[in-house]
Design a protein around this nucleic acid. Structure first.
Length: 284
DNA sequence: ATCCAGGGGGATT
DNA sequence: AATCCCCATGGA
């Protein structure tokens, strides 16, 4: 098995942060699907051991060429983000395949992580070619143009999103998506939002997780909550205003700020749930 | 402005 | 075991 340097990188944290959905624990690491690739990767302190993939791909995919330490230093002006960045050091933004990311986040609207995982696995299984790594078997993610069967999409339990996936399949391809990289973020976002089933939040996820717009700041319910509470004295602010606020405050690091705030908010949420469950059985 | 499309999972009753 | 609530798009 080959290895590469991966300083300031936490594999489990990154895979588990709601950016990617096609991976599963295996041996001491993970089996990961990324478009047509199917590979094994395992963290050994400051290195990654891997099989079934090129090291160049891993560097690009996990953005190991980003200067993580410099990014964390640049966020020090914000105590909340900076504290989360210290506690969750090594959480990276991934650089996914844009088409797979687009399909995944169309599935994500008004849904949740376990269901999104089930949707994309099911789509890969019914539209994708088989792929194997040693004895392990999986399916490649289908290419643009292949998601042309509404019945099979419905069978993947995507529900009302089936028609959005059909439209994306008609109107998006690899070249068009790659072409968005060179645009100003507003233009790229507008281009994605011209597709049905894609509003601001989903567009920002595609921009951040696949098209190198590290200034994108997807506002989901967790981000919305923690930003309102921590920066707007708990006053209600629209998602659009939260997005604009983040762009001004964090600039090109907004995406990284969001990743740290997101897992901070998730952790607080699960703590709050545990506390209230405990409080219900105790005296209060 | 409100409701619903479709659906799994967790919490609550 | 049945029933709410969550999720954050678009159309009626």
């Amino acid at each position: 098995m080959n290895t590469i340097d991966a300083p300031d990188f936490d594999l489990r944290l990154t895979l588990d942060s709601g950016q990617v959905f096609r991976f599963r624990p295996h041996l001491d690491g993970f089996l990961v699907n990324a478009r047509h690739r199917f590979f094994y990767v395992e963290q050994r302190t400051d290195r990654l051991a891997f099989d079934g993939v090129e090291s160049d791909f891993l560097v690009r995919y996990f953005r190991l060429d980003d200067d993580h330490a410099a990014m964390i230093r640049a966020l020090e002006f914000d105590p909340l983000v900076s504290d989360a960045a210290r506690r969750f050091r090594g959480l990276r933004i991934v650089r996914q395949d844009p088409w797979e990311c687009l399909v995944t986040f169309i599935c994500s609207s008004i849904s949740n992580i376990p269901k999104i995982r089930m949707n994309v696995e099911s789509i890969a299984a019914s539209f994708g070619d088989p792929v194997r790594l040693g004895a392990e078997r999986s399916w490649q993610f289908p290419s643009p143009g292949c998601l042309d069967d509404e019945g099979k999409l419905r069978a993947a339990k995507v529900g009302f999103r089936a028609k959005y996936l059909l439209a994306a399949n008609e109107r998006a391809d690899d070249a068009w998506l790659d072409g968005l990289r060179g645009l100003p973020i507003e233009s790229a976002r507008d281009a994605l939002m011209a597709l049905p089933g894609i509003a601001e939040k989903v567009a920002d996820c595609v921009l951040l997780f696949s098209l190198d717009f590290t200034d994108a700041f997807p506002v989901d319910v967790w981000i919305h909550r923690i930003v309102q509470r921590s920066y707007f004295r708990n006053r209600s602010v629209s998602p659009a205003r939260v997005r604009e606020w983040a762009a001004r405050r964090f600039g090109p690091l907004a995406g990284y700020a969001e990743s740290f705030l997101y897992i901070e908010a998730r952790e607080r949420g699960s703590q709050a749930r545990r506390a209230s469950a405990k409080g219900a059985t105790a005296s209060g």
